[in-house]
Structures are given as structure tokens and as C-alpha cells.
Amino acid sequence: MKEEILRGLTDSVVSGDVEKCVQYAKRALEAGIDAYEAIMEGCARGMSLVSEKYEKGEMYVPEILCSAEAMYAAMDVLKPHLKTERVGTPRKVVLGVVRGDIHDIGKNLVKLMMEAAGFQVIDLGRDVPNERFVEAVLKEGADICGMSALMTTSMIFMPEIIRELKQKAPATITMVGGGPLSQELAKAYGADGYAKDAAAAIRVAKELLSRRGGM
């Protein structure tokens, strides 16, 4: 029964079926399934399947956006029932597209996956000036600062932001991503982490947090 409900949640996230997703979320609560477990083992698992399918070319962005709608609808049902002692305080991520760059589809997918994985994301949007990253990290006490760039003209701002952060908020983990980035470039920029897609972003974020001793 529990397995069936969780699988139902996962499947309806993958197929982007909002109604079904909400139904399964309600059934999960009725069956006494822990809301946190329903989110993690149902919704989040669905989103990571979606992300895998995108990487394999089996799903495209329109389908992912529909999956996201379904996931958020289920989360709306489940979230009020989260027991705080079970979850702890969520890890905070400040996320934005760097200055001069308006490509935000990738950043939005990263946000989505992070929220599905239980992170709290502070989305700064696109074409974000360097200072705003630093300000937001300080104000929010963020655990992670994620920067996205799709253009070679914009990614050059990343090392500047990272340098500022290393001075003003040295405990914050810095992560970069987007088309023109790579592991080597991320390293040269002084970033703590790089990920080539949204699913990897979660893995890397969790790994860096556990190394820092925070998760």
C-alpha cells in the first residue's frame, strides 16, 4: 500500500499529471505516511528520474516544467504536515544567473531539483550584479551560493563573486554551473563545486555539505 502510493506519486510527477499527484499526496497523508518521506521517496524521486530522462534525451524541457507543476502541487498538500523535528532546518541556497546573462531556464531547473531535494532556495533571478549575491548570502546566512552562466561574456564575473564570498562569508560553499563552465574552469575560478546538470548539482551540494560537516 505505502509502496504503491509512493510509486504513484513518483509516476505522476514523471508524467506531469497535477491532479493525480495531488490525489496521491492526499492518499499518502490518509494512509499515515510521513510527509517528509512522501516528498523524498515520492516527489523528489520523480524529479530525479525526470532529470535523468532529460540527460538521456527521453524528456525535454516542456515535459520537465509540467513535472515541476505536478511536484509543486503535491508539495503544497504535503508541506503543512511536515514535522519540523524530523526535517531540521533546511539548508539554504542562494541561486542566481550572473550579470549580463538572461538565460534562466537551466537555473530554474536547478532550483526545482534543489527544492525537490529539500533545500530552501533564495532565487535572485537573472542578470544579477555581483554585490547582490554577496548581500543575499550574508543576509540569509546561506550554506551554498550557486551561480549560473550560459554566456562566456558573463561567466567572467564568477571569480569576482567567489573572491568576495571567500573574504566575507568563508564558510559558504560556492557552486557554479551552466553551458560554458567545466570542472577545470570551476577550479580555476576558485569554486568549491561544479555540476553539469541539475541532478549532479544535488549530489555535489550534498557531498560538499557533508564534507563541511553540515548535513
Binding site: 549580463g100 538572461i102 561574456t153 558573463s154
Partner: peptide, 9 residues
């Protein structure tokens, strides 16, 4: 503005 390279919506 610095960093911008083309028109944007």
C-alpha cells in the same frame, strides 16, 4: 551595462 552583450526582454 557591463557584462551585457545583446538585447534582452
Amino acid at each position: 551595462e557591463p557584462g551585457q552583450s545583446a538585447p534582452y526582454v
